[in-house]
């Protein structure tokens, strides 16, 4: 464990908790893409199937349980409890265009052709594009609530910090994983224009609005 990975996990946890609290406190999921949240629930489910079979540390197991629990709770709040506030008119990104290619690629490019490893690879590929429905929704509505932009900033920072973690691990212990690295680079690149808007607008107290 190094500081970048720890900060990355912390940033990821903060993002997940911010979103859950936003929906719960405001009793509304306006501006939130339920489709992205479904993809994140699939990412955690397919990645953490070894939750009970492969014990790494208390930290690892507890974080996995928190991620899975929170992601399913978020999906439930969006499609169950507060579905009246769900913006189904704008949350229309075709997630099958993300699921199918990720699944096909996971079969073609992986470290080991075993069920667990193919599912892990699928979750890595899917996670790299899982935010697209959310970014699509923000572009369609043309703006995002400030709390939603904080959520996106924390979520985008998590994988950026993981890129630094892999840089650190490469130079300190020669470790590298091209599948995770390339997916992580794509994932982070998708946030670039958002990061620019966040830093140039939200941090100056303005609302995040995309140029019309």
């Amino acid at each position: 464990m190094n500081v970048f990975r720890f900060l990355g996990d912390l940033s990821h946890l903060v993002a997940i908790v911010i979103l859950l609290l936003k929906i719960w406190k405001t009793r509304s999921c306006s501006g939130i893409s339920g489709r992205s949240q479904i993809l994140f629930a699939i990412v955690f489910t397919t990645r953490y199937l070894d939750l009970f079979s492969n014990f790494i540390s208390v930290y690892n197991t507890s974080m996995k349980i928190v991620y899975i629990t929170c992601s399913y709770a978020t999906v439930y709040l969006i499609y169950g409890k507060f579905k009246a506030t769900y913006d189904f008119n704008h949350d229309t990104f075709r997630i099958e265009f993300l699921l199918v290619p990720s699944a096909i690629l996971a079969f073609l490019v992986n470290h080991d052709f075993s069920p667990l490893e193919i599912l892990w690879t699928f979750s890595i590929y899917l996670e790299s594009v899982a935010i697209l429905p959310q970014l699509f929704l923000v572009s369609k509505t043309g703006e995002a609530e400030t709390i939603t932009s904080h959520y996106l900033f924390a979520l985008g920072s998590y994988r950026l910090l993981y890129l630094l973690n892999w840089l650190w691990r490469y130079f300190s212990q020669g470790f590298y994983d091209l599948i995770a690295l390339l997916s992580g680079i794509l994932q982070t690149v998708l946030y670039c224009d958002f990061f620019y808007l966040y830093i140039s607008k939200v941090l100056k107290g303005k609302k995040l609005s995309l140029p019309a």
């Binding site: 996995k64 470290h111 080991d112 490893e117 892990w120």
Partner: peptide, 10 residues
Amino acid sequence: SKKNVAHDEL
């Protein structure tokens, strides 16, 4: 390739 890749990251 039969490698036991243990993923220790979240």
